[in-house]
């Protein structure tokens, strides 16, 4: 099952496609490497889906889910998975990803990306669910490492080890969110080098970069700032160890002008190209 990530995204920098930029993007068709959109925003039909389909005519699209709750103790929502399957059938995305998190227990849904203990039992649980999702979708899923504000005493392995096992047993890929790792390093004392070593480089299909904010000493993954200098530094390190991959600039709060996003993407692009040179 150790096949490389089958991601058809171009290996360049892309941006998150968000509502305030829909019109400008479709009107001006700026030079963007690719775009990523949150799957749940396009469930159903009408204007949202048609807007995405128009963008799809010009850009490779990555569908990034926020609601599957791969680690939720409750049964996987068939309705949710069906909706994602339908969206994938219509959009034919270059990549489909979800987060390594939970969101539902006892029928209660928390519309958030919540951490869970990295135990062997949880691994078995997540393995079976990722396998099921991949079977229904008929394609590989990229699973993203989480930013966390709490860590569980009952964890039996690191998140990196958990992801490595998940890849080994399901053939899924990894969406490596560099900023999430940085947040965990600062908040929880996670060892960045251990994470980078633990995950199989061949399985990494995409990187995420974003900005955070700080509340009461806690780094909160708010996606409302430029990428922090420390995160750029960590990204350069990751590029050297794992290699260039399609890289996304995520910005979800206080969304700036499209040109600002594109400039951030360009910074990532320059680092990828510099890395290409050092590999050559």
């Amino acid at each position: 099952m150790n096949s490389p990530a089958t991601v058809a995204l171009p290996c360049v920098a892309g941006i998150g496609l968000r509502a305030p930029h829909y019109q400008e993007v479709l009107d001006t068709l700026p030079k963007l490497g690719w775009v990523e959109a949150h799957s749940e925003n396009f469930f159903g039909g009408g204007a949202p889906l048609n807007t995405l389909l128009k963008a799809r005519e010009h850009y490779a699209v990555s569908l990034h889910g926020v609601g599957m709750g791969l680690a939720s103790p409750d049964q996987l929502s068939a309705t949710h998975l069906d909706a994602l399957k339908h969206l994938c059938d219509v959009v034919q995305p270059a990549s489909v990803s979800e987060h390594l998190c939970w969101n539902t227990v006892g029928g209660k849904v928390f519309n958030d990306l919540l951490p869970f203990p990295h135990t062997f039992a949880a691994l078995d649980h997540v393995v079976s669910r990722v396998a099921h999702v991949q079977e229904v979708l008929g394609r590989q899923l990229l699973v993203e490492n989480l930013s966390s504000y709490l860590s569980f005493t009952s964890s039996e392995m690191s998140e990196g080890e958990f992801l490595a096992e998940l890849v080994q047993r399901t053939g899924c890929g990894i969406l490596f969110d560099v900023e999430n790792l940085y947040v965990n390093v600062r908040n929880l004392g996670v060892d960045a080098d251990e994470f980078i070593r633990a995950i199989p480089a061949h399985a990494v299909g995409e990187y995420h970069l974003a900005g955070f904010s700080v509340r009461d000493g806690c780094l909160v993954d708010t996606h409302d700032h430029p990428v922090h200098d420390d995160v750029w530094t960590l990204y350069e390190k990751v590029l050297h160890h794992i290699g260039p991959r399609p890289t996304l600039i995520e910005w979800d709060g206080d969304i700036p002008a499209l040109s600002v996003l594109m400039a951030e993407a360009n910074k990532a692009q320059q680092r990828m190209e510099a890395c290409d040179e050092c590999f050559a």
Binding site: A19, H38, V66, G67, L113, D221, D252
Partner: peptide, 23 residues
Amino acid sequence: CYGVAKAGANDCGSKKAGHACAG
């Protein structure tokens, strides 16, 4: 109405508390 795009409610859910959520 809604000729312009509704904001993506799941963007905020995606990522933690945009300023309006956590702030």
